[in-house]
Design a protein around this nucleic acid. Structure first.
Length: 261
DNA sequence: CTAGATGTTAAGGT
DNA sequence: CACCTTAACATCTA
């Protein structure tokens, strides 16, 4: 589920479904995903409070409650929010349930349990504590170039570093570099100003395009590689077979013909 | 049975 | 200090 566009879709949906609902109780089925608080603390923080909306910073989500305060939510690799109009048996992978006073509820579902839920009183404090960089869609071109250019490692590694820019994950890093025709192993520091600007523009283009289609890769514009990304894929520009390698320990797909060193 | 999967973080080495 | 690789987390699927 989770890179910036997916989180944005979950956020928007949460806002639609839950704004105005009042939390009656919180059930923590698996406390392994709690981040910095106990079940009791989370439950008493949430009890009786109304959901006002939801915000996002990179892949991190914040559910805004009335009277200040936020539930923090990270989807990890497989996290998602599920809405139940009526109570029923939770799914096997539902880890936390938020029960609302009107009888509906929301589940945090996370098969692999890499997600995290907690609460804070200040988003800024949370971001500082986690050392997250600016959100990939909020940051400006100047700041982007400044931050990227400080690192002497592979451009893909730098794009994936949430402390540099927050929100780009493995799949979108590949797409951004493919759109930019830049090899993932190029040194970030040695890229020209023009190349960095291209990456900046394509970061926006790719993330916004994916948000527009709710991360349904099949519906992405022609020329995107995400819908075919995988072993044996062909370059959407018709330049032959895509190749793969490991960067930063992550599988990386690129077109050796479009993206030269 | 094995390898790998959209994320984050710690640990050890250069 | 900056960077790299590896492992770990937990679970499912190809």
């Amino acid at each position: 589920m989770p890179e910036l566009p997916e989180v944005e879709t979950v956020r928007a949906n949460l806002e639609l479904e839950c704004s105005g609902r009042v939390i009656r109780s919180v059930e923590v089925i698996d406390n392994g995903i709690l981040d910095g608080c106990t079940t009791k603390e989370l439950a008493s923080f949430c009890r009786g409070r109304t959901i006002r909306g939801a915000r996002r910073h990179g892949k991190q989500m914040f559910i805004e409650l009335d009277q200040g305060g936020f539930i923090t939510l990270h989807l990890g690799m497989t996290g998602d929010l599920i809405f139940y109009e009526r109570k029923g048996d939770p799914d096997r992978h539902d880890r936390v349930l938020f029960n609302f006073t009107d009888g509906s509820r929301m589940a945090f579902r996370d098969m692999r349990k890499f997600g995290a839920i907690g609460y804070v009183t200040s988003i800024e404090l949370f971001i500082r504590k986690k050392k997250l960089g600016p959100d990939a869609l909020e940051i400006g071109g100047q700041e982007f170039a400044f931050r990227i250019g400080k690192h002497d490692s592979a451009i893909k590694t730098v794009l994936l570093d949430q402390k540099v820019v927050a929100g780009i994950g493995n799949l979108y890093a590949d797409e951004v570099l493919y759109q930019s025709r830049i090899h993932p192993m190029r040194s970030a520091m040695e890229l020209s100003a023009k190349e960095v600007e291209t990456i900046f523009k394509n970061t926006r283009k790719v993330l916004l395009a994916s948000i527009r289609v709710s991360s349904n890769f099949e519906r992405l514009p022609k020329g995107f590689m995400l819908s075919v990304r995988g072993p044996g894929a062909s370059c959407p520009r018709g330049n032959g077979k895509m190749a793969s390698l490991k960067v930063n320990g992550r599988t990386t797909f690129y077109c050796p013909s479009c993206q030269t060193i």
